[in-house]
């Protein structure tokens, strides 16, 4: 137990101040749209797993996503946002559509990675539908192969922001 406590104390708080926009402004936006915290359901619709590793990294102490009031949930029914990696394989098409349908409205869909955004090296084929937008409506895309955690975070911010301004327009 002493070792555990000493480890915690020695490590300290590593969370970095996030780049633009400020956390307070983001939290205000999220509150404005949803009236509560942002919950995300991640769906791997056929990715190579690199995007998943970078999305997982958002929960490490440096990015501390949960500290910003954003958390990953286990059920689409609890989610405000679907964070989808691609390309959408033909074998995952049905599962992705069903997951999308299970998310309550209003919902946001963010496609992560070059493959999710445009099909990437895989494109479309007998086995791949390519971009997520070919299968379900997408609000925002985050490019990169894989995009780093900072880019994913920024993309989540922008998706929330653009939807927010859309509501008021």
């Amino acid at each position: 137990m002493f070792d555990v406590l000493s480890r915690i104390v020695r490590t300290g708080i590593l969370t970095e101040p996030s780049a633009s926009p400020s956390i307070e402004a983001l939290q205000k936006d999220i509150w404005g749209i949803l009236g509560r915290a942002l919950t995300i359901r991640q769906v791997d619709a056929g990715s190579c797993n690199a995007c998943e590793l970078e999305i997982q990294a958002l929960n490490n102490p440096y990015y501390n996503l949960e500290g910003m009031g954003i958390k990953f949930v286990a059920s689409p029914r609890h989610a405000d946002m679907l964070l989808v990696t691609g390309p959408v394989s033909v074998n995952m098409e049905e599962a992705l559509k069903r997951t999308y349908d299970a998310v309550p409205d209003p919902k946001l869909v963010v496609a992560v990675g070059d493959c999710g955004a445009c099909g990437g090296v895989f494109g479309t084929s007998y086995a791949s539908r390519g971009a997520v937008a070919n299968v379900i409506p997408v609000n925002h895309t985050i490019t990169g192969c894989p995009p780093g955690p900072a880019a994913i975070l920024k993309g989540i911010f922008e998706a929330v922001r653009s939807t927010f301004s859309g509501v008021h327009r």
């Binding site: 394989s89 074998n91 494109g123 084929s125 007998y126 791949s128």
Partner: peptide, 11 residues
């Protein structure tokens, strides 16, 4: 398994 089959061999 097979859900993420992307047709790599053909590609």
């Amino acid at each position: 398994l097979g859900y993420t089959h992307k047709g790599v061999a053909k590609l």
